[in-house]
Simulated assay, not measured.
Amino acid sequence: MMTVAITGRSGCGKSTVTECFVSRGIPTVDADQLSRQILQPGSPVLEKLAERFGPDILEDGVLNRRLLADRAFATPEGKQALDAITHPAIVEGIQAAGRAARQAGSPLFVIDGAVLVGSALDGAWDRLVVVAAPYETSVQRIVLRDGIRPEMARRRLDAQLPEARLRARADVVLENDGTRDQLRQKAEALVDQLLAQAKGGAVERI
C-alpha cells in the first residue's frame, strides 16, 4: 500500500484535491479533523491536558480552548508539553486508519493535513503532494471562505511554513493557478498515476 500525504497552505485548494481521492473510494484520514476530535468531551487527552495546564481549562468536561492556548503558547516549554500530549493521539489515529486501509486491501491511503511537514507525522508517507497557489489568490480564497479581512488572511498565511519549504520537500506539486475544474483535472490525473504506481508495486511498504 502506498501512503500519500496531501498538504498545502491556507487557500491553496487542498480540499478540492483530497475530494478527488475520496470520490474514487480511496481511504483518507484528515489529520486536522483528528486534532479536533481528540479534544472533544470524554477524550483521555483532556485529562492529561488538565493535569499539565490546570483543571480549570475544563468547564463541565468541555475544553476552554482559549485558556489552553494562552497557557500552552506562553512559553516554549508549554508548546512542547502540548505537542507531547496531543501528537501521539493524532499519530495513533492516523496509524489505525492506515491499518484499516491496508487490511481492506486498498492500494492507496491518503493523509490530508495542513501541518504535516515538520510535525510528528513528518515522513510517515511514501509520496508528498503539495498543492500550491499564488499568494494573492490564496488571500482572496481565505477572505471569501472565512469572511475575514485581507490583512488577517495575509497574517495567517505568513505564519505558516513558507511555500518554498513545502515545494522543496514535495514529490509532486499541483499548481492551482487556474479554475477549480482545472485543478480537479490535475488531481484526477494524479490519482490515476498513483494508483498505477501502487498497483505496480513501485513503492515498498513502510
Rank of each mutant, 00 (worst) to 15 (best):
I111R: 01
R145W: 10
E47M: 05
R141Y: 09
A189C: 08
Q182K: 02
D112Y: 12
K186S: 07
T18E: 04
M152N: 11
R141I: 14
G105N: 06
P41Q: 11
L128R: 07
F21N: 09
F109G: 12
Q140V: 05
P27V: 03
A153L: 13
Q197H: 10
V203F: 15
L157H: 00
Q140C: 07
I26H: 00
R165I: 08
R127K: 14
E163K: 00
C12M: 13
Q80V: 10
L194W: 12
P162T: 07
D126F: 06
R71Q: 03
T3K: 13
G98R: 15
Q160P: 05
V29M: 03
T7H: 00
R71N: 01
D122Y: 01
N64I: 15
I94Q: 02
T75N: 02
L49T: 00
E136I: 09
E188H: 07
D32S: 07
L108Q: 10
S35R: 08
L183I: 01
R141M: 14
R24S: 09
A153G: 09
G61M: 11
A124E: 10
R9N: 14
D56G: 05
I57E: 03
G105Q: 07
G13W: 04
Q185E: 11
A100L: 13
R66W: 12
A164I: 06
A69W: 03
G8F: 09
G200A: 13
P134K: 13
G123I: 08
K14E: 05
L49W: 00
A168Y: 01
Q33K: 13
V117A: 11
D146F: 09
D60M: 02
V173H: 00
G61D: 08
N64R: 15
E204F: 06
D70Y: 04
A198V: 10
I90Y: 01
I142L: 15
D177R: 11
T86H: 06
V117F: 03
T7K: 04
L67V: 11
L108G: 11
L108S: 10
A31F: 02
A84F: 14
A198H: 03
S15I: 11
L144M: 13
G93V: 10
I142F: 14
G123F: 11
